[in-house]
Amino acid sequence: MDSNQYRVLEGNISVPYRWTPGDIYGRFLGGLKEKKILGFRCPECKKVYAPATDICTACYYGFKPEDQVELPDAGVVKSFTVVRANLWPPKPDPEVVAKAIAPTKLEDHPLLWPPAPPYALVSVKIEGADTEFIHMVKGERNLGKLKVGSKVKAVWAEQREGYLLDLDHFEVA
């Protein structure tokens, strides 16, 4: 058989999801919608988790709404990486995706797609938190100034829906 007779099937698996954040992640995302970073304090070890998580792992304590604390929207960069290369295939045609998930509407379940480079993935210790928040720094001006130890402040999106990217990115102070 000629090598050009070997066949390949091109396709995709597209699934509309409605992920349940539950009580704790749900509050954290609700906080972002209101331009607030909420943390959760473990009553046993007193550590403050920001962003939220369902449990304090070491204590195996399940967070409750009353453990919520409000934190400033600024912090210090503990580690970062500047993503320069585009590691992804081209973004799919919305019509292809819409067809793949019909009759669910793509407007109701927008396509999830990674951000376009360049951007930096940063690990930010929010003031008053004991964990680090993984988020982005964008813009060449910010990327140039970025160092371990840089102070950063949140830049909020105009349109907010209760999604991680309501906090659009951090900018270097």
Partner: peptide, 16 residues
């Protein structure tokens, strides 16, 4: 339908 419960919380419930 555990609409009020994230995946980690659901697993934690069974384990506890």
């Amino acid at each position: 339908s555990h609409w009020d419960c994230s995946m980690p919380a659901l697993y934690r419930l069974a384990v506890t």
